[in-house]
Design a protein around this nucleic acid. Sequence first.
DNA 1: ATAAATTATTGGTCTTGCCAGTTTTGGGGT
DNA 2: ACCCCAAAACTGGCAAGACCAATAATTTAT
Lengths: 231, 231
Amino acid sequence: MNGFRTTERRLYQQVADQIRGLIQAGQFRLGQRLPSERELALQLGVSRPSLREALIALEIDGTVEIRMGSGIYLVANTERRAATSASMGESPVELMQARAAVESAVIVLASSRMTTECLKTLRQILDGMAAEIAEGRKPVEHDRQFHLTIASQSGNGVLARLVGELFDDRHSPLSTQLREHFETPDTWSMALFEHEQIYTALEGRDSLLAQAMMHAHLEESKRRWLDSEPR
Amino acid sequence: MNGFRTTERRLYQQVADQIRGLIQAGQFRLGQRLPSERELALQLGVSRPSLREALIALEIDGTVEIRMGSGIYLVANTERRAATSASMGESPVELMQARAAVESAVIVLASSRMTTECLKTLRQILDGMAAEIAEGRKPVEHDRQFHLTIASQSGNGVLARLVGELFDDRHSPLSTQLREHFETPDTWSMALFEHEQIYTALEGRDSLLAQAMMHAHLEESKRRWLDSEPR
DNA sequence: ATAAATTATTGGTCTTGCCAGTTTTGGGGT
DNA sequence: ACCCCAAAACTGGCAAGACCAATAATTTAT
């Protein structure tokens, strides 16, 4: 007997594949919690250490997120979007504060590297946003593109990723619930106006003004969010 | 025996980093066999299951090859680090830029909410850091705790999470490789000095000075990183 | 009804034990 | 001496149980 598989592959790999299979089969919903380690081990017929090794493999390749004391969660969307889901204890207020910090820094970098092409792209996004508002729809995607386009122009991949993740964190259960209240055509118009101010600052290559406008925009968003809260 | 560990990273990650360090330090030759699982576990002061989890992480990222009944072998390395670096698109420089942006904002918040207890904790961390440097060891964990403690004091969970994620930088295993170059007792001493400056600013509730010191610290770290790069 | 204390649940780690391959070793045989 | 082969001494693979720490759920007190 040579060294080839007598025992098939290692157990943790088989278990990891098995779990990937269950996920693929739609047994678990995205972002949802999986059974506990003990239960999963029992269900798959392996010991807890082996199940644990499989989970580490899944955690490394980004399939799963493990939160101590809480449980095992499917990471939202296998695409590039949303690597980490916002856990509770992170209020929308904190989120906007974080966005203000990151995006204020980002826009300074972006302002100095701004090109006419990029400005043209931003112009189109704002026009599309205005059109959607006029039709009474919610221009979430255009809003997202506006912020992401600026972030990309910063030339810093890490910061760009952060901006995207923080924006997408708005889709957490709590944020979604709150957004229903504040997302009126009126508030979107105000948001659009603030976007226009940012655009103007970028057009004039005024990095300080752009930074101030961006900060004010996210600050206002936070305020609108809070004021609409019924409590 | 062992029963303490608080808010640190998962053990298997620390152990994996430790082993990567030993490898990079030239303790083991390429293709050669490492000590057995039992011996390594004993040597690193962890249990065999934990050491095992670390080995799985190292096996997945291709650092090591495990042959059943035979031993643990270093894989023929080659320069695949550059490939992963290029594919990520997130250079260490960008990383430090992002950290500077986030942590500069964080420390302003933390400065205004700073308590004597938190200052005491920071003092202990810095003392522990100094002790480790004196012993010729690398105070990575204390470094991490210093930044994370400040981040927690900001009262913003989102920002605290970002600081932790950017420090750990799980998404780019290449950073750990590069870090080995710049982590000398000398550079650590400089880092400690800069930490002390930040601490002094926080002690005096000078948020602007603290912000400046934090930014300078991360800027210096980036510079040390770059200067040590052999390419 | 809200806040604080208690309990239950969950991941994190250690210990011990045994099994299954691999390598080394130490006797016979020639 | 040499070679061959079986047994013993490694090595990694896996399981079961126990305990701790962090979180979530529940109850109790205010």
